[in-house]
């Protein structure tokens, strides 16, 4: 009885115990401290998993920083504060984060645009966009049901007078709203590039004027006024080259429709 049933169990119990103990000792002696560091880095990161850094989430970015020494300034929502703390955890030099904010390339408020039809469906931009490119008279403009505002985790987007307005101070730069807009009106710009043409209408001046009095009519006044060759009209729409623009704001007063904002 003992030799046939109990002894084998005993032997394997002891074998298992001994090997388990050995492994436990080994794993504490040779413990990898990257796990602890990654944990610390992860706690500094904001944890919204926006993947602006190019990795699949905050966990993955923290892992990459610790294991593959990826640069610490890729987290835009975390900003300089997160970068500085990560640098001190990793013991490497601090790298400046280029802050980015979202910008809505449309200024067609309710008072300057008309409605094509009376929309009574689901109050969502992407749903409304399915019907004749949205209810607004401008096919390029903001629909104003706030799909972007719902995606924003920082309460930085508000629908004011029919268009989405972004609070530059609240915006963390996670770019979650960019993919939400069915009109692709939201783009990420650097925080310092504050002079932008707030219009996306590529129609000719006359057609733009009919649907929205705030729209760019491609008159090229700003192109001539700019001393730095920073503004060009492409496909009936003025575009500002952020790398050349000196933020002198000389073009803002010249624009007859007032679609250049700062």
């Amino acid at each position: 009885m003992f030799e046939v049933y109990i002894l084998p169990i005993l032997i394997f119990l002891i074998l298992g115990l001994v090997s388990g103990l050995l492994l436990a000792i080994a794993s504490t002696v040779f413990s990898v401290n990257t796990g602890k560091k990654a944990q610390q880095v992860r706690e500094v990161l904001p944890g919204i998993n926006c993947s602006v850094c190019g990795f699949s989430g905050c966990d993955e970015y923290a892992k990459q920083i610790v294991q593959n020494s990826v640069v610490t300034n890729k987290c835009i929502p975390g900003g300089d504060k997160a970068s500085r703390e990560i640098s001190s955890i990793m013991g490497i030099e601090f790298e400046d984060v280029i802050e980015k904010v979202a910008f809505v390339y449309c200024n067609g408020t309710k008072s300057v645009t008309k409605e094509k039809y009376d929309y009574k469906g689901t109050p969502s931009c992407s749903a409304c966009n399915e019907f004749y490119s949205g209810k607004g008279s401008c096919d390029f403009g903001c629909i104003g049901y706030g799909d972007c505002a719902q995606a924003c985790g920082y309460d930085a987007i508000q629908i004011i007078n029919g268009i989405a307005v972004i609070d530059r101070e609240k915006c963390a730069g996670c770019a979650k709203c960019v993919t939400q807009c069915p009109k692709h009106l939201i783009k990420m710009i650097e925080y310092t590039d504050n002079v932008q043409v707030a219009c996306s209408n590529h129609n000719k001046g006359k057609e733009t004027r009919i649907c929205c009095t705030n729209g760019c009519i491609a008159c090229e006044k700003c192109v001539k006024a700019c001393n730095f060759d920073a503004i060009h009209v492409k496909r009936n729409l003025a575009e500002i080259d952020d790398s050349k623009c000196t933020k002198c704001e000389g073009c803002i007063g010249i624009c007859p429709v007032g679609c250049i904002l700062s």
């Binding site: 050995l22 492994l23 080994a26 794993s27 040779f30 413990s31 990898v32």
Partner: peptide, 8 residues
């Protein structure tokens, strides 16, 4: 054991 040592 090898795995732990290699990882370290």
């Amino acid at each position: 054991l090898v795995e732990i040592v290699l990882q370290r």
